[in-house]
Amino acid sequence: MEVYDYIEQLQNLISESSKIPFSNKVIVDQEKILTLMDEMVKALPEDIKKAKKIIEERQRILVEAQKEGEMIIKEAKEHIEKMVDQNEIMKTAREKSEELLAASKKAAREIRVGANKYADEVLEQLEKHLEKILASVKKGREELNQRM
């Protein structure tokens, strides 16, 4: 179960608890709250593992893009070397290799930017999710401390 589900359960438990007359306070089952919070703490490492996998995937994509870019550059250089002997062919080869080099650099840059953007979006979502969890946990603790 994800941490978000535990937070929903906590919210439901609080909203369904008996209210104290003439106040906005409720009586909650401390054991249920603490059990849910323990489960939430156990689920956090899974969310962190997911974030780590996303970062590793981003790194793999970046390495792959770099290798692909290097391969394209190598192929362009090899292509140029084969055509060096003939003057007109050499001129054409240089132009094409520059185009290939520019295209490969652009493609590698776009892949890198896309991978970074994707990783940033996923990490941003995880950050927001963890902030919500932390806020819920703090609120729950504050309410528990107010009842003591």
Results as ranks from 00 to 15, higher is better:
82 K>A: 13
22 F>N: 11
92 T>W: 13
108 A>L: 01
41 V>G: 11
92 T>A: 12
71 M>I: 09
27 I>R: 11
36 L>D: 04
137 V>Y: 11
57 E>V: 05
132 K>I: 12
9 Q>G: 05
131 E>L: 04
78 E>L: 06
105 K>Y: 04
109 R>H: 08
138 K>E: 07
50 K>I: 06
26 V>Q: 07
68 E>S: 06
23 S>G: 02
113 V>I: 15
46 E>S: 05
108 A>W: 01
125 Q>P: 03
20 I>Y: 06
100 L>P: 00
5 D>S: 10
23 S>V: 03
93 A>N: 07
97 S>L: 00
57 E>H: 05
107 A>S: 04
7 I>E: 10
138 K>W: 05
54 I>L: 08
96 K>A: 07
113 V>R: 12
34 L>G: 10
77 K>F: 01
17 S>W: 03
31 E>D: 15
123 L>T: 11
34 L>M: 15
142 E>P: 01
79 H>Y: 12
144 L>V: 06
35 T>F: 11
40 M>T: 07
81 E>D: 05
20 I>F: 06
113 V>Q: 14
95 E>M: 09
129 H>M: 13
76 A>S: 01
37 M>N: 03
17 S>F: 02
101 L>Q: 01
82 K>Q: 14
125 Q>E: 12
129 H>S: 14
78 E>M: 04
129 H>R: 14
133 I>E: 07
25 K>C: 00
105 K>A: 08
9 Q>R: 14
102 A>N: 08
117 K>D: 14
20 I>N: 02
105 K>L: 08
73 I>P: 00
145 N>C: 11
7 I>H: 07
51 A>V: 12
46 E>H: 06
112 R>A: 07
72 I>C: 00
34 L>R: 14
114 G>E: 12
125 Q>M: 07
143 E>C: 03
83 M>N: 12
48 I>M: 03
77 K>R: 02
46 E>K: 05
131 E>V: 02
132 K>Q: 13
92 T>V: 09
39 E>G: 09
27 I>L: 09
54 I>S: 09
13 L>V: 08
55 I>L: 08
63 V>R: 00
127 E>S: 10
31 E>I: 15
80 I>R: 01
124 E>T: 13
7 I>G: 08
16 E>M: 08
36 L>M: 08
95 E>I: 13
63 V>E: 00
81 E>V: 06
94 R>T: 10
73 I>T: 03
118 Y>S: 15
48 I>K: 00
123 L>D: 11
42 K>F: 04
117 K>T: 14
21 P>C: 02
32 K>E: 12
15 S>F: 03
71 M>Y: 12
49 K>P: 00
105 K>T: 10
56 E>T: 02
142 E>A: 09
75 E>D: 08
44 L>M: 11
11 Q>A: 07
53 K>M: 04
63 V>T: 00
93 A>C: 08
91 K>H: 14
49 K>D: 09
107 A>D: 04
46 E>A: 05
114 G>S: 14
79 H>I: 09
18 S>D: 11
112 R>S: 10
13 L>D: 04
101 L>Y: 02
88 E>A: 11
9 Q>K: 14
98 E>H: 10
91 K>P: 05
117 K>R: 14
128 K>P: 01
129 H>G: 14
114 G>N: 14
9 Q>F: 08
129 H>Y: 15
118 Y>E: 15
77 K>Q: 03
35 T>H: 11
6 Y>P: 03
61 I>E: 04
18 S>Y: 09
56 E>C: 01
133 I>F: 04
101 L>M: 05
66 Q>L: 10
47 D>S: 13
28 V>S: 09
113 V>H: 13
